[in-house]
Every structure is written in structure tokens, then in C-alpha cells.
Design a protein around this nucleic acid. Sequence first.
RNA 1: GCGCUCGUAGCUCAGCUGGAUAGAGUACUUGACUACGAAUCAAGUGGUCGGAGGUUCGAAUCCUUCCGAGCGCGCCA
Length: 568
Amino acid sequence: MKLQIKEKLASEILKVFPEGLTRTQLMALFEKPKNEKHGHLSMPVFFLAATLKKAPPIIAKDLCEKISELGITFLDEVTSVSGFINFKFKSHFLADELEQFIKAGAIGLTKKGEAKKMVIDYGSPNVAKPMNVGHLRASVIGQALRNLAESQGYEVVGLNHLGDWGVQFGKLVWAYQNWKQDYDFENQPFKSLFNIYVRFHAEAEKNPELNEFGAAKFRELEAGDPEILEIWKLFVDMSLVEYDKIWARLGVKHDLVRGESFYSDQLDDLIDKIKEAGLLEKSEGAFVVSMDDDRPPCLIQKSDGASLYATRDLASAIYRKEVLGCDLNVYVTGVDQKLHFSQVFTVLEKMNYDWVSECSHIMFGMYRFKDSGKMSTRKGRAIFLEDILNQSVEKVKGIIQEKNPDLKNIEEVAEIVGVGAIIFNDLANDRIKDVDFEWDKILNFSGNSGPYVQYTAVRCKSIMRKSTIPVPERFPSMPQFEEAELDLVLRLLNYETTLGEAFKHSKPNYVAAYLLELCQSYNSFYNKCKVLSDDPRLTQKRLYLVDATQKVITEGLKILNIKTPEQM
RNA sequence: GCGCUCGUAGCUCAGCUGGAUAGAGUACUUGACUACGAAUCAAGUGGUCGGAGGUUCGAAUCCUUCCGAGCGCGCCA
């Protein structure tokens, strides 16, 4: 239920509760009734049993009577069932609230996080490797969290923490210098780069000496050898072109590319700082910072002097705070990096950076294959993201040709629906859970799916196209609701809190679940209530609801980074 | 071996800080297009919430333990 409604109700009923309770505390108690017949909003009173020394059902009954005596104008009914107080609002009140909600320019936006700055790092693939299903999650979850943060009033800086530094670039440079003539870098730069990468690892299996060559090249790269640097830059550029193509399709937008290489000239200072803090220890030839518990130490510098992933992440965290000035620093990566980030955060804490509490690692489960287990690009065991998107779009094209062959811009719509289906499918599940990769599953558009939500919005738009009456600016003065209408109104009023909860828990799937519920409610309404009728006032009222639904679906899908077509 | 995460209907999954009779989709059985698009809707079948203890007025949710799966565990990122 809308925040303003909770505020209003809490203010009114506060006086009947025992002293000491605040309005905010009261507001936190409101919940959505499990069974909609109970009411529009409910409040359990079990928490008062201990202080009042009475049984919850009696407390509920007493409070219920007192609330009734207050004569709150916008309340229709207050009832008590076992330990709950259930509220029903007057229809005109709900209509007013809906109108204000829809009128408020940017639907669902709040100013809560105003002036706060969030830096969020997401997507971040590794140069030379094509994006796979795993990057789908990293990109799409990250972008959704970013959108959610913006909806809550945060200023967001989206960072592409490109994996463009490390020994593998030494390896790639070595491979390029020795084998480039075997590939068509001219016409197929990225494909060639990937092939040369796979070849290197295959040959290094047989001939481990190659790894030494690669490591040596990386040391030269880190030392700033201009010729090697130039080759490295080539790799990065080739890769970014490819990634940007896919991100454009997914609607993923970063504000800054700050690859690992960006921090390479800050690492000496960083290591000095760690040393000054007395944290740096030599262990087995390498430099580490030890944890105070049973976690393994955090590797800072390899025995050959080269930097490591953690070294660059430490520099990056400091950069995000001191240069970008973030109030929140969020990393979106797979669960497999959990230990890494816990180590990095601990090192920051030991360096007395108290802002480490503002850093959070939002992790997501891994895609895996049922038979062969974890995917590995190196071993060629991966499903490329581009293939998934293409297959999905193709499948949608087939469905459109069957269901709506006269549609004009089939290509464009198939792209919106096909890509949307993939995104929705991923975001609809709790991000922490692992996902078994199966083509049938990822290309299944029936039931609870992106296309279902898009289709619902499309049908709303269709009604409005057909209507000869324009959508009224204000809610028509005919607010008595039929059951299906009321259900729809209540769901529409839940949008705002859904965004807040989704942001609070960093769970885009709350938004997906909400949209599915809203669509079910709308479709039920659609089948029961004829919108365009002979009664102009009734038509206006229902048209208003159709338009509101369409707007909320479009906004909600936007949060999930999914577009809404006009027709499909 | 140690650490972390997950285990909910035949299948795929929701379930918000513990709250009312555990919910969707799918599959299966029915019904609704001379209706604003049937990629829809309505109804039915289907659950010892992995097992066992515990905390609580109340547990799918918190704690302990066992079982199963996944991930991680020093010079990759």
C-alpha cells in the first residue's frame, strides 16, 4: 500500500495506542492482508500482548472499537479478526490516492535517497572473452539495481570494472605476437582474439612453459612497455566494441569504464599505505594481509612483484570513495567471488577506512549445466549471450508470424519481446539461487513471463487506441468499485512500496512478481468488465484504470530494463 | 577437510522485518471467442515447506544437528 496512505492512517490511529509508540513504528506494522477479503490493510497486535497483559484477540477488538469511535473520514470499515485489525478504505479515498499517484509525473519515484551518491559496478566482463549467460545476470541484475536506486532518488554512477589487467594479458600478448598471422584480425577482430585465447590455454596444457612467457609479458606490460601497451589497448578496444553491441540490446548503460588497468599506476602508493599501516606480511615469497579469523590471507603482491585482483580492487574502492565521492559502493558479481570481497573489505577495515560499511557485495547464483557442471569459457564450455538473445528473438518472430502476421514492424517488436523475455526470465527469480541452464527453459514464454506482461500492456494500449473518449485527466466522480476494479486499484497502489522493498533488499524479482500480480489482476478485470460501453462515465472510469495500469506496467518494466511495444 | 549458499506441488519457481486457510506458472481435467487482441480468462486435481529437535502466543522464515546439491578455500579474475 502507498506510503502516504500508511502515513495518514498511522497519524489518525496513533492516539488509541499505548503511549511511547511513534508513527513510524506503527507504519512498520502495517502489512498486506494474506486474504484480500480481510481488508485493504492490516495490522497484527500480538506485540502488545506482553505490555497490556491481555490476549491479542481482545486487544484487537478493543483497539478496533476505539478506532471506530475516532470517526476517521476515509475509513470505510475497521474489523478485528483474532489478533489482527483490518482496515477498509472508502472508495473515493482510494480513487484520490490513485489519482495523485498517477499524476505525480514520474510514477513511483521518491526522494528518499536524495543527494546520496551510489557507485555500482556491474556487468564487468573480461576482455577477449565473449559474454556468456553468466554475464547476462551480472549485467541485467546490476542495471535493474541501478534503476531501482535511481527510483529511490539516488544519484548513480554505473561503473564498468572491465577485466582488462592481469597475467592473462601477458599471455594474450605473447600469443598475438607469435600467432597473429594465423587469424583474420582484420575482418573478425574479436573472434580472432577469442580463438587465440582458447588456443593459448590449450597449448599451455601441453607446454606449461608458455605460462612463464605470458607472466613475463605481463610484467613488461605492468612496467609500461609502450609496444606491449599498444597491443593491449588493441585487445581492449576490440572487446569493448563487442560488449557495447550486446549491452545496447539489453539496455545496459554504464557511466564510466574503469577497468582494472585504470588503477595500475595507483598500486605502488596503495602498497606503501598498507605497509605503513603495518599490515603487509611476507608469506611464501608473496606479500599478503592476513585475516584475523580462519579465512586465508589476502594476496597483495605476487612473488614476482606483479599485482593481483585484490590489489586492484582495493585501489578501486579507495578511488570510488575519494575521487567519485560515493555514499554507497556496490559490487554486483557471482557468489564465487564472495571470499574475495570479504577479504578486500577486511583489508580496507584494517586500513581504518571506516567507509567500508558503505561497501556491499551483491551476489548472484551461477548458471550451470546439468551434466557438465560449472561453465568455463577457457574450456569452451559456455553458452554465448548473443546466441541466447538471437534464438529468443527468432522464436518470438515465429510466434508473431503465427498470431499477428499483419504487424508492420515485426523485426523491431521481436527484438523487444525476445530480449525482454530473456531479461524477465532471469530477473523473476531470487538472484541468489543457482540456475540450471536449459534451452527449453530459457526460451519458454508461456505463463509467468516477460511476454505475458508486455502483452497485457499492449492490450491496454489497444483499448485506448480504440476509444473515442480521451483518458480523463482526473479520476471520474464515480468511485464505487466493483470487485475486479477494486482489486486492480489496490494493486496499482502497491507499486511504490514494491520499489522501496526491492531496493532495500536489492531484489529485482520483487518488481517482477509485482508486475505478474498486477497483470493477473488487470486481465481478470479485463475479462469481467467491459471498458468501452454506452455509459460515458463508466467508460471514463475504466479508461482511467486501463491507462493507469499501462503506465505502471511500462514503468515497472523499465526498472527491469525491458521495453514495452505498442503492439505485438 | 573447513567455510558460505540453497533444498517449498509431478516440473519451474514466489513467499517482504517470524503472522491469519503456504501462493503463481506449467502439466493434467473442464468451461468461456458473432466481446475492448484467446500470447487471455474462469473452475478443479495436486504440498508431512529435505529429516529431526529447539526458541515463540505464532516458524517455510530464527537457532542446533543430520542428509542432499552448489560454490569457495595464496601467487587466475
